[in-house]
Design a protein around this nucleic acid. Structure first.
Ligand code: NAD
Ligand code: NAD
Lengths: 210, 210
DNA sequence: CTTGATTTGTGATAAAGTTAACAGAAACAC
DNA sequence: GTGTTTCTGTTAACTTTATCACAAATCAAG
């Protein structure tokens, strides 16, 4: 099991499996077969088995997978044994929504710092956290041991803000600005852009009129 | 050029190309080579050429692609010639941020209806739009000719709300609730879940401590 | 204990996607 | 005008990913 040899596309699917398994666990379910999980997720049993088997033998013939055990294993594989501290940079409408969102903790993340450069916003509180001056990023990020940031600033400053974060020690950025960020090797980047999702759909939906 | 025969993964990349080309166009740039575009996007020239060539010959040897022309062609391919009306369902923190966001129009979408089931929220205005009662979805969606919705309701009601939308004539749903939605054939679905992006990163970033 | 029904993990096979390489068109330099 | 450079579209080779199919393990019922 050499971590880097496992295809990226398999890693991409593990969080999706985990999310569903955690929900099933909360509903009190004990075991599940790859077949049933595939039906819930709209994928195939073979793919789920193959993906999971990259990391060990977590299932049992005749029974399927023990849900709490598999959840634990997936969390371990994804390095979710401990909760990660996360910063949100750019506390506008979107940053505000993220800062107030209660759903991250169960998934392994806790927002522990908020940054903005608008004097009107600096000093205000959201969910008990104070918005700090973005110029403090270089000192505060290492101080708090933060390795992950969500970037919700305007496009015009997204690249430069990302560079500042990386220099401060951030290893992963979840970017909401609709622009591709170029970052050094070793820094992880994920892009979230609703318009891209919408445009993928319109290809298939067809012409607006007609 | 048979639309359905073109691999989904290629379609997925077109909006990313379009987004970048539109920005370059706004900056006044006239042409670009696949090589340069690849560098901007962190991908290869060969892939860009291959993707684009699925739909016709839009480039010119020695020069590259004419940006305004390629933007137009991509918009046409993705059915973005006219602006799509979109509904937002569930006007909490996230729905509110989406409703206020000004960035959709340039990408081909206009938010024209807001729905919620909270009496406190129904009747309020955001950006000149009134939040309507979610029970009116079955009549208002067809009335307004809306084919696309963004779903920002709690997980517990996401599937049932999606079902209502589909029955009302919606053909595509951008789902923000962290749950896989099962929808009939022919309805497009895209999922946005920041926690999944974060968990993909933590696999590579490594253990929190150590 | 045996039989039949499940279900995993995996090697083999098939499908899909990416990369490489190049002919030929266009532009440019002089 | 000629030679050089740039750059596309496309074919073919290669790589990656998905699917299939089955032995072996487990379980439940009688
Ligand atoms: N709101 C949405 O629903 C939505 C949807 C899609 C994409 N986005 C993208 O997300 C980003 C944020 O969107 P928004 O609607 O919250 O915008 P916004 O304008 O409301 O917020 C941006 C915030 O960033 C702050 N900021 C500006 N420069 C900064 C800097 N250098 N350092 C730190 N903070 C800085 C601003 O003060 C502001 O508070 C944008 O890139 C936008 O394109 C937003
Ligand atoms: N806020 C975030 O940053 C964030 C991040 C990731 C995921 N999400 C997900 O997005 C969704 C919305 O998040 P939020 O933070 O805005 O939550 P929220 O609780 O602030 O908003 C939900 C809204 O949906 C409305 N609603 C409830 N039931 C409804 C129904 N049947 N029909 C119509 N409206 C209904 C509520 O009245 C409320 O206004 C949730 O599924 C959440 O898990 C949010």
């Amino acid at each position: 099991m050499n971590r880097k040899d496992i295809p990226r596309i398999i890693i991409s699917r593990l969080p999706v499996y985990l999310r569903t398994l955690q929900r099933l666990q909360q509903e009190g379910r004990q075991t599940i077969s790859s077949q049933t999980l595939g039906e819930i997720l709209g994928t195939t049993a073979a793919q789920i088995r193959k993906d999971i088997s990259q990391f060990g033998e977590f299932g049992k013939q005749g029974t399927g997978y023990n849900i709490p055990y598999l959840v634990e294993q997936l969390q371990h594989i994804l390095h979710l044994d401990d909760i990660w501290d996360v910063a949100v940079v750019g506390i506008g409408d979107l940053g505000h929504a993220l800062a107030r969102y209660q759903g991250f903790v169960d998934r392994g993340f806790r927002i522990t710092a908020l940054f903005d450069n608008d004097p009107e916003k600096i000093g205000r509180q959201i969910q008990g956290l104070t918005i700090e001056d973005a110029s403090l990023i270089p000192s505060r990020i290492p101080e708090l041991g933060i390795k992950i940031a969500m970037l919700t600033v305007p496009v015009s400053v997204a690249q430069q803000t990302a560079d500042v974060l990386v220099r401060a020690g951030v290893r992963g950025i979840l970017n909401y600005a609709p622009i591709h960020l170029n970052l050094p090797e070793g820094v992880c980047i994920e892009h979230i852009d609703p318009a891209i999702g919408l445009q993928r759909m319109t290809y298939y939906i067809g012409q607006r009129k007609g």
